[in-house]
């Protein structure tokens, strides 16, 4: 299998500390991979480095054979990488429809954009009902759906999801995970960064466990779920 995203020897300094201490990570074309770990393990710093929001102190990030280090943020989606940020980041005073259109900002194929808009409304009925409403008036779960839909509107080759379950009611979390699975089943490559390890492991094919800025464990998601160390540390058993 070919690696779409390949991270090697990545080190990131954040707020005067070394948040990421040299990690290797790869996501193959079409895979749903999760990166789990406790708060402060370095997950978000890793993701920020991938998205160009933090400059790595060392290491390589290659996406589709191209280096992402030093690439301006606004070029990411043009290269096929979409990040759904922590806390969703919807534009609160734009309507749902306008938010989705912002996702397609870099595209010029008007017909394709309209078709994708309809596709998103099919995938997320609630967004269709609320398409003329300001995004700030949506519930947390609806905002998360909007954020995912908006990212998909850019027709990315890969989706990076930062803590999509954060702050959501359990029922809504299940729904969001269902959507992520569905998107992955349709062939999207996904890197899911989650604190909710059980959930992430149930959804993903492979997993990396991060601890103190290092990858402490990597295996198939099933193997992680069965591993006594992971169970003890992250699944509360």
């Amino acid at each position: 299998m070919s690696a779409l995203l390949e991270v090697s020897g990545l080190e990131v300094h954040y707020g005067g500390i070394q948040a990421v201490k040299g990690i290797d990570l790869r996501v193959n074309q079409g895979e749903l991979v999760t990166l789990i770990g406790a708060n402060g393990a370095g997950k978000t710093s890793t993701l920020k480095a991938l998205a160009g929001l933090l400059r790595p102190a060392a290491g390589q990030i290659r996406f589709a054979g191209q280096s992402l280090v030093g690439m301006p943020v606004h070029q990411l989606i043009r290269n096929g990488l979409a990040l759904v940020p922590e806390g969703r980041g919807v534009f609160p005073r734009l309507t749902v429809a306008e938010n989705l259109m912002m996702g397609a900002y870099v595209r010029r194929d008007a017909d394709g954009i309209i078709a994708d808009l309809e596709r998103m409304y099919g995938l997320f009925e609630r967004l269709h009902e609320r398409r003329e409403q300001k995004a700030g008036t949506l519930s947390g779960g609806e905002q998360q759906m909007l954020a995912i839909g908006r990212a998909l509107m850019g027709r990315p080759r890969m989706l990076l999801l930062d803590e999509p379950s954060m702050g959501l009611a359990p029922l809504m979390v299940q729904k969001i995970i269902g959507v992520i699975r569905q998107v992955a089943n349709e062939g999207m490559t996904v890197l899911l960064v989650e604190q909710n390890a059980r959930l992430a492991l149930q959804a993903a094919e492979r997993a990396y466990v991060m601890e103190g800025g290092r990858i402490s464990f990597e295996d198939t998601a099933q193997a992680c779920l069965n591993d006594p160390r992971v169970r003890a540390a992250y699944l509360g058993e």
Partner: peptide, 14 residues
């Protein structure tokens, strides 16, 4: 308008 509301996320949109 998107940039006024959230410049970081607007950047992610390209």
């Amino acid at each position: 308008r998107a940039t006024a509301q959230n410049p970081a996320v607007a950047g992610l949109m390209g």
